[in-house]
Write a protein that binds this DNA or RNA. Structure first.
Lengths: 272, 272
DNA sequence: TAAGATTCGATCAAGAGCAATCACATGAGA
DNA sequence: TCTCATGTGATTGCTCTTGATCGAATCTTA
């Protein structure tokens, strides 16, 4: 039995039972407890279940059961299993960790949607943080996995993008002053930060205005990747956290715009 | 048996019995009294039940049996209420159905938190509805089970109450005009609609201003039940939907305030 | 009001569950 | 065939949960 099969069977198990134990899975799948624990931990990190002592619990929230989040290889939801594999997970996790190191207790921040920012949110514990997000998956993640103080902008919920967007100009957002904004992207090019969805662009441009520092989380596959819509020019970006797959040339043109480029080593522990 | 299972079984127990004792739980779950006490205390803190000497009591009031996290790492409580743990489920379901009959496609409405309104939300299918809610469980429910258009007010997320509350006066809410507001309550008395949580009162009073018609969903156990805080006087209520357990006297004083009282027969299907 | 019986919370020891580490097996590629 | 990478299982301290004990608090009954 291979990794993918086990994962699938574990998720199946949890769709019928609300909770399940390591022992039960050990017996049912015929592998060692150590392997089950490893699997559960990884599935937890990928957001498919909640790890609890002795086993795992279904992630009930499913706040976001809409279509896959387009820009981020399908984030979660009642995801078909193929969605569970996050591309470049090792790099993304390392980047998310580095982003966490970059915040201090009590900080007010904006966290935009995306798989890397989602990983960052899933690792947040300190309840002194103050987070504003428009992303439904991140809202769910923070609710389930932390005691972080969460603020939401008002607005209509767009299921396909998994974001909340305010059609008006007033609202909470105008009262929120964030020290930092963490943002993912579809691509990072000389033209700036790029996305492919117009709604996302609209949302992100607005959020950016409310943060004094913009931190981009982009694994190296995003550098010079194709994407059509510019969110902002490089000049508006303060920090880029990426992995060591980035080219020296790219580092050069980023630094030419006074961007603090932080390079982390991809985390090996990650699966597929 | 693990923590998650125990907690679920304790809550289930309380859905069929109004009170239960440490001894009974000890026997039924096969764990020590010390463990049961610990569990009861924690569930009490999380608002899932009321701790009393010798055992625990159902807490009718808690609108949000949410997924609070206990301590910094990992233990999660029950998730959103399932039918089986709702007191008076039969009556509530019938009331929720009647409320659904009372809306027409394309309607804009506000749905407040509460178990009855939650049931109502869980039965909504038509995607032409336009719903504003401050309640997180209802948000989850609508996202998961319907394609209804959802609008959220901005604000801070209060985990214990499971609501979003805007500390400012402006925001989406000021732009939202609802034909009807559906609201649950802790109690319905001659003094009006009652709650026990000040935050809820604050939230509901604001929502009410934005709806042209106020519809109260209250099963008969709520009539003249104890609760300390008045949300609004009876004169502001337009419709009350309740079950046939209501007294003739209560119907009289409700009608004296020009309230349209609609009485439904409790749904037998899965009464407590 | 006083005495006896429950129930409670604090404390501690035993055991279950855990992460980290190492070693072995398997399979791919040179 | 050799080597390296990867996935799995076993071992080892460590942490957290559980159950038992005991004095204190509370309820009951006389």
């Amino acid at each position: 039995m291979h990794l993918q099969d086990r994962w699938k069977r574990i998720i199946d198990e949890l769709s019928s039972e609300r909770v399940t134990s390591v022992d039960e899975l050990t017996e049912r799948l015929g592998v060692s407890p150590a392997t089950i624990r490893r699997d559960l931990n990884e599935l937890h990190e990928l957001g498919h279940l909640l790890r609890v002592r002795g086993g795992a619990m279904r992630s009930e929230g499913k706040l976001y059961s809409g279509r896959e989040e387009k820009r981020s290889e399908g984030l979660r939801g009642q995801s078909s299993f193929s969605d569970s594999v996050i591309a470049n997970a090792g790099a993304k996790r390392a980047i998310a960790k580095a982003a966490l190191d970059y915040i201090t207790p009590g900080l007010s921040m904006i966290i935009d949607g995306g798989t890397t920012t989602w990983m960052m949110a899933s690792m947040m514990n300190d309840d002194s943080y103050n987070v504003l997000t428009t992303s439904v998956p991140i809202l769910q993640c923070l609710l389930e996995r932390s005691r972080v103080k969460v603020t939401l902008p008002g607005g209509e919920l767009f299921r396909d993008q998994g974001i909340i967007l305010n059609p008006y100009e007033d609202g909470i957002l105008q009262h929120f002053a964030a020290a930092r904004m963490f943002i993912g992207c579809q691509a990072l090019t000389k033209n700036g930060l790029m996305q492919t969805d117009t709604l996302l662009v609209q949302s992100e441009r607005r959020l950016m205005e409310r943060a004094s520092e913009v931190v981009v989380l982009a694994d190296s596959s995003k550098i010079d990747a194709p994407a059509s819509l510019s969110v902002c020019p490089l000049s508006q970006i303060d920090v880029v956290i990426t992995d060591d797959g980035i080219s020296a040339d790219a580092v050069r043109w980023l630094k030419a715009h006074d961007i603090d480029v932080r390079i982390v080593k991809a985390d090996q522990a990650a699966a597929a």
